[in-house]
Design a protein around this nucleic acid. Structure first.
Lengths: 209, 209
DNA sequence: GAATGAGGTAATCGGATGATTACAAGTGAC
DNA sequence: GTCACTTGTAATCATCCGATTACCTCATTC
């Protein structure tokens, strides 16, 4: 009888796999594909480094699995939004779905890292394919026009960048950050602020120049 | 008597520095901060690896310099657009300025990589600061509203992602790519296609799944 | 023409990291 | 209980990479 909270007994391989994928999503999201080590993923998941390598074969395959899962979660959320209450506008439904995804930084940040690695021989094609899957989902299943889909994606990319760059870490020091955040996340700002608490800044490093 | 084309004689330190910064912008743009090695930068610049390190102290400092230069070039282009012909709408002037920047993938891709590394202790704050500098430029010098600036930035982020993921590499196989590209780069599609020729795909790697 | 200094590299070092191997411990079948 | 299988780790290896050192080679100055 193994349970998630039971530390003494063993876990099924599938449970461990999900656990490692969650940890990898977080670690890759923070540091990117090249910046994250399999050891960091292993430590975040509470297992040994050789185990995560053996479970996925290579670090690259692990990243591909993380990426695929992130895309699945994103598209599943969008599909649910599309199938949602028709009395509220589609754009608003999708925006809300995106906002909820925002609670898990890792998912969106892994996508951003992948989108910036188009030159990578196997990650690049995979990322392109995933991006276009999302676009086609909006067009075909969502019934959006090309302009609507592009605008929605553009807003999503800006939101991703704002999350990725940890804009909220400068919220108190920079008045312009508050203004920008208010226009990108109207009504939801306080929830986002609560979900993404700022880190303590490194006292050694300065700003730019 | 040293000139840029003269291979026999030596180059001034400042010339070499610009050369290395150009190479580093390209290499960091393709592979990201962690994925790029100082040796790859050195080879791209035609100098030795120790020279690159000594010139900038650390790889991190090199990336910060690349990032700062990219932001300077971006903001300089936007300033020129703001000061441009008032008979054409500001959004169009800025869009054109952005389009011209597009010719140098490295500049925009380095920004994207930096924007995804907000958790990095010194690169993160620098990237945040740079992003907000651009936002304030649009608001204060460009006279844009918060909504206008956000929308413009959103479009830019989507464009950056499309460049980063090398969407044009799948142009011929994916009809949806043509549609998307046409709505994101109206009128300019053929120029962009000519500027960013596709790579030959790796025959070993498949797509996703 | 030697001294001085700047431009530049070969060689190398130490640490990080992805991957491999060998082994240990829990679990179920019979 | 023991055989076979799965879950998991410690130890180790080979490679890459950023950084350091020591050295070389042109120019310029006097």
């Amino acid at each position: 009888m193994s349970s998630v909270t039971d530390k003494k007994t063993r876990m099924s391989s599938d449970e461990r796999r999900e656990l490692v994928l969650d940890a990898a999503t977080t670690v890759f999201g923070e540091a990117g594909y090249h910046g994250a080590s399999t050891d960091a993923v292993a430590r975040a998941a509470g297992v040994s480094q050789p185990y995560v390598v053996r479970m996925f074969g290579t670090k690259q395959q692990l990243f591909l699995d993380v990426l695929g899962r992130a895309l699945d979660q994103l598209m599943e959320a969008f599909r649910a939004a599309i199938a949602g209450d028709p009395s509220v506008p589609l754009g608003r439904r999708l925006g809300l779905a995106y906002f909820e995804l925002t609670a898990n930084r890792g998912i969106l940040l892994c996508l951003m890292h992948a989108f910036a690695l188009g030159a990578e021989p196997v990650i690049g094609p995979s990322a392109r394919c995933g991006f276009m899957d999302v676009y086609r989902l909006l067009r075909d299943e969502g019934g959006m026009s090309a302009d609507e889909a592009s605008s929605f994606l553009a807003g999503g990319m800006l939101s991703n960048v704002i999350l990725g760059v940890r804009m909220l870490d400068d919220y108190d020091e920079e008045p312009a950050v508050r203004e920008l955040m208010l226009t990108v996340f109207p009504e939801k700002l306080e929830i986002i602020r609560a979900t993404h608490p700022p880190r303590q800044p490194d006292p050694v490093s300065g700003r730019r120049r």
